[in-house]
Each structure stands twice: as C-alpha cells, then as structure tokens.
Lab assay of single mutants.
Amino acid sequence: CHSECLGNCSQPDDPTKCVACRNFYLDGRCVETCPPPYYHFQDWRCVNFSFCQDLHHKCKNSRRQGCHQYVIHNNKCIPECPSGYTMNSSNLLCTPCLGPCPKVCHLLEGEKTIDSVTSAQELRGCTVINGSLIINIRGGNNLAAELEANLGLIEEISGYLKIRRSYALVSLSFFRKLRLIRGETLEIGNYSFYALDNQNLRQLWDWSKHNLTITQGKLFFHYNPKLCLSEIHKMEEVSGTKGRQERNDIALKTNGDQASCENELLKFSYIRTSFDKILLRWEPYWPPDFRDLLGFMLFYKEAPYQNVTEFDGQDACGSNSWTVVDIDPPLRSNDPKSQNHPGWLMRGLKPWTQYAIFVKTLVTFSDERRTYGAKSDIIYVQTDATNPSVPLDPISVSNSSSQIILKWKPPSDPNGNITHYLVFWERQAEDSELFELDYCLKGLKLPSRTWSPPFESEDSQKHNQSEYEDSAGECCSCPKTDSQILKELEESSFRKTFEDYLHNVVFVPRKT
C-alpha cells in the first residue's frame, strides 16, 4: 500500500485506493498535508475557505447554543480562536489581540433580562453583547459592586439597553466600559436606550469621564423622579442622539420631579488639616426662599486615587461607600458681607490618608415646582503625618564578641513616609551569675543571650482551647457569634421535631 494509506488498500502504491488515510483526505486521495488554498479540518480532512465560511455563517444565523462559528488559524479551520487571539470578521482569520481579548457573548432569543446578581454573573467577562440587555433589578445585597464585577467589562451592545423598574439602582456607572450601543435591534418605538419607572436612579454616568455613542435609535425617559433633566440632556449631547427624540420621548413632568437638581456650584473657602482632623468651610448658599434650606450634607471617604465619582458603590438597598454628615444651616444675616460661612470639623480620621470630599445642599421643593440647590466639586484632601507606631517583631542576635545583629519589621501604621529608623542602645553591667558559677561542674549549661522565638506554653494553649472559665478566673470563653447562636437554635429545633416524629412513629394507638 501507499505510504499515506492506513489499515489496508485495494490497489498497491495508489493513494486513492486506501481504506483510511494516515494524515489527511483531499478529493478522494490521501495526502501528507493540505496544500494551499485548503485548510486542515478536524485533523483528517482538507477543506477550502468557502466550506469553513459556510459553517461560520450557519452557526451565526441559527443562534443555536453550542454550535461553533468556525475560524481560520495556522492553516486550520477550527471552532474558535485560541487564547490571546480574536477573529477578523472580513476573512475569519485569528489575529493577536492588542491588550485583553474581546469576548463576544451571543444571547438566546436576542435579549437577556438581568433581574438578579445570579443572572448578571452569566455575563461575567463579556466585552461584546450580541443582542439586547434588559435591566430589571428590584433589590439585593452589595448590588453596585456585584454588577460592576460582572457587567463592568461590557464595551458594546449590538441591540438596545433597557432599564425598567430597577428600584435598587442609583447610577449606571457599573457599566464602566460601555462605549457603544449599535441599535441594530430596537425596542418598540425605535428606541435604543429605554429608561422607565426607576424610582431611585439619580445618575446615568459621570459624563466628564465617560463617552457613549448610540449609532441608531432614540432615547426614552419616563417616570424617573430623581433623575434630573440636565442629566438626560447631557446624554443626548454626548451620545449623538440630540435631535432624534420626539416631543413625548422625554417626559418633562415625570423626570426629576422629586430630585434636588443642583444648578449652582458650592466653593470651599477654608481648608485646614491635622493628622486626624480636617476643618472645612464653604461659601454660604440661600435659595430664593431661605426657609427652603434644610441644611447641608457632607460626604467623605478614603480615596487612594483621584478618580472618585459621587455615586460609586451606591445602591438604593443601603450600600453606600460614603460617610454622610448632616449639618444645620448657619444663622442668616441681613448683611451679605457678614454672612457666616458654614463648615464642619471632621474628626477621627487616619493620618497621612487622602480623602475625597464634597458637600451639597438639602432643600425642600418650592411652590413653583422649581428645584434649587448647590453642590461642590469633589475635592481631595490629605491629612498630615504623625509619629508612626512601633516597629514590629524586633530580633537581636550576637554573632561574635563585638557585634549584635538587630532586625525588625516595619510598623503596622507608618502614618507617613518613613525615611529612617533611630536605634538606641545602652551598655549593661555583666551578670554576677557568670562569676559565681563553678565551671568545672559536669552538665553545666552556660547562660545564653542568643534570641529564641517566643512560644506559647501548654497552660496558655489549654486556656485558649477551654470553653469555660478556669477556677483562677484568668480566662473566659469568647462570646458566641450570631451565626453560632442561630445554628444552635436550628439544631435544637431539629432535635425537638425529630423526637416528636419518633414518638408518633414508635407509639401507635392500640386498636379498641
């Protein structure tokens, strides 16, 4: 048989008469490798580009789960590009990614509803959504962080984005990388972005840091009482949809009607710091009717980097990364020049730590249904340095008659930039024990000054392991946590139920 035959053949030295091919099969003959313009397919066939392209389009058009959109890589027609490569849609070739590779997620039936953290986790790592997304989240724990972890990498949506009755959302900033909504599939009414009845939605994105392009379709905003109209108009300008909307697409009466839409800028007039305090004062603000001013709200939190936005980490279910302080308005003076500047002394802060701070007014709604208010920009203030805590785990070892090696770990709280350490030492008198000992005694162990690591005695271990207080009263049991108490109650309830079950099964009433 021919060298490319495997198993047997019907005619000697003829690659077209093989029972099976050793390498690849091409047009009725066995070959060692697939010549151009053919590609290896499933490690035994040679196919042309049209064959591989037909497989790709067949799966793409069917949208069946589990099928493969075949691509070409290293002269092979394979189910998908290997790690580190992405497909070129024009020629199906796998090309190296520039940075992290995109991950295209194809949605069944063309859309997916995100109504819980669990459903959001199914899209973790996706960068391109081939379909439409509907966000409908009523509640949950730590929602802002969970949504950002699972949806934060999405850069492109081919269909539309719909935010509907998501009472738990305060902001859409968890879509931190969303840059493009194509609108290839539109919501009824030709809408590519749809926001309806979101009672706590206050911000779409921080438009000073976020760009969003909507290729096709219109915007729809109705019944978002805490979303200011200025935020919607800003989205029109940034996304390129200005002029597409009709009169009733953006409701003037049901958007922002319960919001404090600040239209003035508060400026800080005085800032002073110490290692654990920050004193702030800002310019006074009074609405047209000074009785509408209820006070100020001061927001602050630790910020290692200057990239904080107002609604980071917030949701309507209680999660809030900001510390909020309510401040009463100052006494009002008739003389504008003698107006008191409101302020606040922030206490209990960490030394040498940068804080993000902003302040906003708290006002009631005027009778004319106009909203007044003022808010400052987010500023960054760093507390002063102070003395560091003591170095940890000092170790001293003498390696000769004239040297001592000293080692330690950095302090747990540096409280500033540590530039150097101060080492103090003092000579001590020799131990009298060394002169009084009889060095001729056998088995004498000389006193040693070398360091030995501390260890816990058996008594201390027994005390720590004991669940009861000892007789001397030195140790006591740790208080039980809520989960331990709940577990004990469940076990007790189970024992009672099981005992009742045994009584009912074992003891049967005697027939009379």
Rank of each mutant, 00 (worst) to 15 (best):
Q403C: 13
L204G: 05
K103L: 08
E283G: 15
S389T: 08
W282Q: 01
V238K: 15
Q403G: 15
L212P: 05
L279H: 15
K407H: 03
Q339S: 08
R281L: 00
D326R: 02
P329W: 04
E231D: 15
K375T: 07
S401N: 13
C317R: 00
N224Q: 06
K337Y: 10
H222S: 03
E156P: 00
Y300T: 04
D328N: 15
I327Q: 02
E246P: 12
F311W: 09
E246V: 10
F174M: 06
Q339V: 08
S166A: 06
S321T: 12
I405R: 11
M235E: 00
P330N: 11
I214E: 00
R370Q: 06
S274T: 12
N141K: 11
G140K: 05
E156V: 14
E187R: 13
A385W: 04
K177T: 13
P284Q: 15
S338K: 10
N248V: 09
K226T: 05
W344P: 00
G217T: 00
P391N: 02
Q382T: 11
A251H: 03
N198G: 02
L204H: 01
N211Y: 11
I135P: 00
D326N: 14
K177E: 15
E264K: 06
L161S: 00
S400F: 03
S376P: 01
D393G: 01
P330R: 12
Q339N: 14
F358L: 03
S338D: 01
I379R: 07
K277N: 15
G243V: 00
P287R: 04
Y191M: 05
T353V: 09
R202Q: 04
L201R: 00
V128Q: 01
K218S: 01
L147A: 04
R332L: 04
G343I: 03
I188M: 02
K277Q: 02
V104E: 07
D335R: 13
R164F: 11
D335V: 06
Y223D: 05
R179L: 07
L196R: 10
K103R: 13
D257A: 15
L345I: 14
T118N: 14
A195C: 15
L123Y: 13
P330W: 02
A149P: 03
E237H: 09
N150I: 13
N320H: 10
T273C: 13
K209S: 08
K337D: 15
G125L: 11
E184D: 15
R202V: 13
C261N: 05
E109K: 12
K103E: 11
E148G: 07
Y305P: 11
H341I: 11
C317Y: 06
I134M: 10
P304T: 12
K350F: 11
I129S: 01
S166F: 05
A356E: 01
G183R: 02
Y191A: 09
T241C: 14
L280Y: 00
I250D: 09
L392N: 05
R247G: 04
S401A: 14
A303D: 13
D393P: 04
D384G: 08
T118I: 06
Y285F: 05
P336I: 03
I188L: 09
F311H: 10
F174C: 11
I181M: 04
I135V: 05
S402C: 04
D206E: 13
G313R: 10
I163R: 00
I157L: 05
T273I: 07
T241L: 14
W322Q: 04
D367P: 07
T383M: 01
I378N: 01
I378E: 01
R247A: 10
T361D: 01
H222K: 01
S166D: 03
L266R: 00
Y300R: 07
V104K: 08
K218R: 11
P394E: 04
S269K: 07
Q199D: 14
S400Y: 15
R281N: 01
G295M: 15
L298I: 07
G183H: 03
P388S: 02
T118A: 02
N263L: 04
L123E: 02
S192R: 01
F311I: 07
Y300Q: 15
C228E: 09
D257Y: 09
P304K: 15
T323Q: 15
L266P: 00
S192F: 01
S166G: 12
S398N: 15
T386L: 09
C317H: 15
N130T: 11
R179G: 11
N198S: 03
L252C: 13
G217N: 04
G140C: 15
P330F: 12
N200S: 10
N399A: 11
N334F: 03
G373D: 08
M235F: 05
P342Q: 07
K350H: 14
Q258G: 04
I188G: 11
H106K: 04
D292N: 12
L107T: 12
V128S: 12
S400L: 06
R176T: 14
R291G: 05
L108P: 14
L349Y: 00
Q339I: 12
R291E: 01
N200Y: 04
I163A: 04
S269L: 13
L293D: 03
N334H: 15
A316N: 10
P304G: 06
L143Q: 15
L147I: 05
N211T: 10
L107G: 05
I327C: 03
V117L: 12
E368K: 14
F275L: 14
V238E: 10
S400Q: 01
D393I: 02
L362I: 07
S173D: 07
D249V: 12
L280Q: 00
D367K: 11
Q382L: 06
W322Y: 11
A195D: 00
D292K: 02
S166V: 11
W408V: 01
K409C: 13
V128K: 05
A149H: 08
T383E: 00
L406T: 13
V324Q: 03
R370P: 09
L227P: 00
Q306R: 12
R247C: 05
Y380S: 03
A259T: 11
F290P: 12
T118R: 07
Y355K: 00
D289I: 02
V359Q: 00
K409R: 14
G318Q: 04
P329V: 04
L201G: 00
K226L: 06
L227N: 00
N263E: 13
A149S: 06
W322V: 07
P304F: 05
E148V: 03
P287T: 11
D276G: 11
R369E: 11
L219C: 08
L186K: 11
E148R: 12
I114D: 00
N340R: 02
D289L: 03
G217S: 03
A168M: 02
P351K: 03
L293N: 06
A168T: 14
I129L: 15
L331R: 12
E109Q: 11
D328M: 10
L161A: 03
L133Q: 00
L362G: 06
L265T: 05
P304I: 07
T361P: 01
T215Q: 10
M297C: 06
D257F: 09
G110T: 09
V238Y: 09
T273D: 01
N263K: 09
T113F: 02
D249S: 05
N340L: 08
S239I: 13
F220R: 15
E111V: 13
A251P: 11
S274P: 00
L161T: 02
D249R: 04
N248W: 13
E146T: 05
L219Q: 02
H222R: 10
F296A: 06
E236A: 11
K177P: 01
A195T: 06
I157F: 02
C105L: 01
K253C: 06
K350T: 05
G159P: 00
